[in-house]
């Protein structure tokens, strides 16, 4: 009897113990398993032709337009509102440039992550050379010939664009000064003939202050031609004023440096 009592007690105790041990497990959350991932293997070729790229671009443009609409409701973008009446440019040129400015003015709306849809897309949208060329096809041809003539490199063109004067604005200014500058005819061919003039302009293009940067050279013995050249450059700027500067962006061009160099012309 005592023996069966002992077994009963022992077994009960065992089960109570077992229950006490396993109960905390039942309180825990089940282990969070990740959902099943299906992986598609795509064969990599020399040229990628991912089919969804154009589609993605359409979506981007749609999103952009929606965002723009929101902006225009609150306040119209500055470059659309302001016209440039006295600028010499072709009508189609103007239109395209406005498009370009939009891209430049709201850089935050261009999300690089979204743009990274394909190598092809990325290149098309972000190559700055392409942007410069976009301004005008004709201008690009002109720039190419000018580059040959005046040793202007692609990077120069790009820089001046980035600095605030567009190609056509710079061309207009340059053409204006070409006409005003009477190059002294007695210059030596084999000397350094660069005259750098720094100008401070008023918003209407008239000159507030002009300064020759290599002023010391003007009074160097044996360099009297340099003084003559520097004076002719100063005269050119004064004859030309008011300079043909863009009506907007005064902050960008209020300080202007003109590099006068007749070397190419004298040799040619």
């Amino acid at each position: 009897m005592s023996r069966s009592l002992f077994f009963s007690f022992f077994l009960h105790a065992f089960f109570i113990y077992l229950t006490a041990l396993t109960l905390p497990f039942m309180l825990r959350d089940p282990i969070d398993l990740p959902p099943i991932v299906s992986v598609e293997f795509i064969e990599i070729k020399d040229t990628t032709n991912i089919p969804y790229a154009p589609k993605a671009r359409k979506i981007i443009e749609k999103v952009k337009k929606e965002k723009e609409r929101v902006v225009s409701e609150q306040a119209p973008p500055a470059d659309i509102a302001k016209e440039k009446p006295d600028r010499i440019s072709m009508p189609e040129d103007k239109k395209e440039k406005q498009e370009l400015k939009k891209k430049k003015q709201n850089p935050e709306e261009i999300k690089p992550q979204i743009r990274q849809v394909s190598e092809f897309e990325k290149k098309e949208l972000f190559d700055p050379n392409q942007i410069a060329a976009l301004i005008d096809k004709a201008k690009e041809e002109q720039a190419a010939t000018e580059r040959k003539r005046e040793k202007l490199t692609q990077s120069n063109v790009k820089n001046s664009f980035a600095k605030g004067l567009s190609l056509s604005e710079e061309d207009a200014l340059r053409a204006q000064i070409f006409g005003c500058w009477s190059v002294p005819l007695g210059l030596p061919f084999d000397e350094e003939l660069l005259v750098r003039i720094k100008l401070k302009l008023k918003p209407d293009g008239t000159i507030l202050k002009s300064e020759i940067l290599d002023h010391a050279r003007m009074n160097t013995p044996g360099q009297s031609f340099y003084k003559v050249l520097a004076e002719s450059a100063l005269r050119a700027v004064r004859i030309c004023q008011p300079l043909k500067v863009p009506p907007t962006g005064y902050e960008k061009w209020k300080n202007l440096q003109l590099n006068f160099d007749p070397t190419e012309m004298l040799k040619g």
């Binding site: 005046e150 202007l152 001046s160 980035a162 600095k163 605030g164 004067l165 710079e170 200014l173 340059r174 000064i177 070409f178 006409g179 005003c180 500058w181 009477s182 190059v183 720094k198 450059a233 050119a236 902050e251 960008k252 061009w253 300080n255 202007l256 440096q257 003109l258 590099n259 006068f260 160099d261 007749p262 070397t263 190419e264 012309m265």
Partner: peptide, 13 residues
């Protein structure tokens, strides 16, 4: 954008 703009004048009359 706000640095000094430089324009090369290589021709005249």
């Amino acid at each position: 954008a706000y640095s000094l703009i430089k324009v090369d004048i290589t021709r005249g009359n």
